[in-house]
Write a protein that binds this DNA or RNA. Structure first.
Length: 114
DNA sequence: CGATTGACGTACG
DNA sequence: TCGTACGCCAATC
């Protein structure tokens, strides 16, 4: 049983799990933290596979640069992602997180290596 | 094995 | 300010 995912994917999951409850992050921020500032698409793709990862990966806390729930369609139910965010105290208007900048959790800052 | 797609982001016109 | 083009790398067709 060799590792099925690239180290990049694994690292993405790890960072996403570090996102505090009630906080959100973005694909680009994570990709950037991992050194692939242009690999934002890979982060999104990793999230696609995150559904079968253990432990649970709070992919609903990961949004795009716009604070928009771009991946809400991948949660089974369209409202599942929004519901999860609201359950954590995050207000979601339409498909966009309210006060996104204040709730934004940037790994390059929070996990910054001095 | 080659072409296309994708939960994004930045650059350019 | 808005729309289009490109890059990134893995998975799917």
């Amino acid at each position: 049983m060799a590792k099925m995912q690239s180290d990049f994917f694994r690292d993405v999951y790890e960072v996403v799990r570090l996102i505090p409850q009630g906080r959100v992050s973005s694909y680009g921020a994570i990709a950037r933290y991992l050194g692939s500032s242009r690999g934002s698409r890979m982060v999104g793709y990793a999230m696609n596979a995150a559904h079968h990862q253990i432990p649970y990966v709070p992919a609903h806390r990961v949004l795009n640069r716009n604070g928009m729930l771009t991946g809400k369609h991948h949660f089974g139910d369209t409202n599942a992602m929004q519901k999860l965010l609201e359950m954590e105290g995050i207000q979601v208007e339409g498909d966009v997180v309210v006060n996104f900048e204040s709730l934004f959790w940037d790994p390059t800052i929070e996990l910054k290596i001095d």
